[in-house]
Simulated scan of single mutants.
Amino acid sequence: MGVTVFVLRPEPGLSATLARGRKRGLAMEAMPLSHAEAVAWQVPEGTFDGILLGSANALRHAGKGTDEGAGRISETMGGSAADTGLDMLPRLPVYAVGKATAQAACSLRFPIAQVGEGGLQKLLDTLAPDAPLRLLRLAGEDRMTLSPPEGVTIETCTTYRIVHRALDEEDAARLREGGVVLLHSGVAARHFAAECERAGVDRTNLSLAALAPRIASQASDGWKSVAVAPETNDAALLSLVADMCH
């Protein structure tokens, strides 16, 4: 059967990661410890030149806007305050953190202005607009602080939150047997480390494979090993895991 690879991320990414890993012959096991939950929000005043996305979840859950927000945005689209869901957002060009987020935006009929590699801050660092660029950032409650370059302003709206669950006894028992744990976010890394401490799971039996250095840093220390994918995408992460397992 080989080394067990535990996947902590929530859907819809969970199923995709499981499928990719199993295609590589890895012994993948789903152990989602969180889910995304929409929160009410409203669009800020004024007009925007684009939408900044660090996560596909921010767009998927953006339909939970308030009536006031829907009214504001519908005025720019010629609609009514009764508009709901993604119809409250104009199809502005999207600046996406990576390919998966860009694909999610495309599936919802948003044009793509630029796709980054290596994180949202690196994407911003590549922007050098000839005219002022005002971006609407859709994000989760727990997000990284950004430093926009000259000429770029960002208005941030929280469209979702991550809700965590505790490790149950069955989860803890499986983890005590050892394996490799995939970490797709810093929030997940912190929560997982805290839950292992609470449940008495021996960290020295577990190796961590993180999507980025900042994610690995959130899991603290004491693990059997910690490795970081060479690129911030699922394919690179699973390639790393394959090497760790064999």
Results as ranks from 00 to 15, higher is better:
101 T>S: 13
82 A>S: 14
89 L>Q: 05
78 G>I: 01
90 P>S: 11
87 D>T: 15
80 S>V: 06
78 G>T: 02
88 M>F: 11
71 G>K: 05
110 F>V: 09
105 A>K: 07
72 R>S: 01
68 E>I: 05
96 A>D: 04
112 I>Q: 11
102 A>T: 02
68 E>A: 12
89 L>D: 10
79 G>M: 05
96 A>N: 02
97 V>Q: 03
93 P>L: 07
80 S>M: 01
86 L>W: 01
87 D>S: 12
96 A>V: 05
65 G>I: 11
69 G>V: 06
111 P>V: 10
86 L>V: 02
81 A>E: 08
104 A>L: 05
92 L>E: 04
95 Y>T: 03
81 A>F: 12
76 T>K: 09
95 Y>R: 00
91 R>E: 13
111 P>E: 06
89 L>P: 03
113 A>S: 13
68 E>G: 00
113 A>R: 03
83 D>Q: 13
97 V>P: 07
98 G>E: 04
71 G>S: 04
97 V>S: 05
82 A>C: 04
88 M>S: 06
107 S>F: 01
84 T>V: 13
92 L>W: 15
81 A>C: 11
101 T>N: 08
75 E>T: 13
95 Y>S: 03
87 D>K: 14
66 T>R: 00
111 P>N: 08
102 A>D: 06
65 G>D: 06
84 T>E: 13
70 A>N: 14
96 A>W: 02
107 S>P: 00
87 D>Y: 11
99 K>M: 11
91 R>G: 10
102 A>L: 09
66 T>Q: 02
75 E>Q: 12
77 M>P: 03
96 A>E: 02
104 A>W: 04
97 V>E: 02
95 Y>E: 05
75 E>W: 01
80 S>W: 00
65 G>Q: 09
93 P>G: 05
87 D>H: 13
106 C>V: 10
93 P>K: 03
83 D>P: 08
104 A>D: 11
104 A>V: 13
85 G>S: 02
108 L>C: 06
81 A>G: 14
107 S>A: 15
84 T>C: 09
75 E>V: 12
89 L>V: 08
79 G>D: 01
67 D>L: 14
86 L>Y: 00
111 P>F: 03
88 M>V: 15
107 S>D: 14
106 C>E: 14
93 P>V: 00
109 R>Y: 05
85 G>K: 01
112 I>L: 15
72 R>E: 00
67 D>Q: 04
84 T>A: 12
93 P>F: 01
80 S>P: 00
82 A>P: 00
108 L>H: 07
73 I>H: 13
78 G>Y: 02
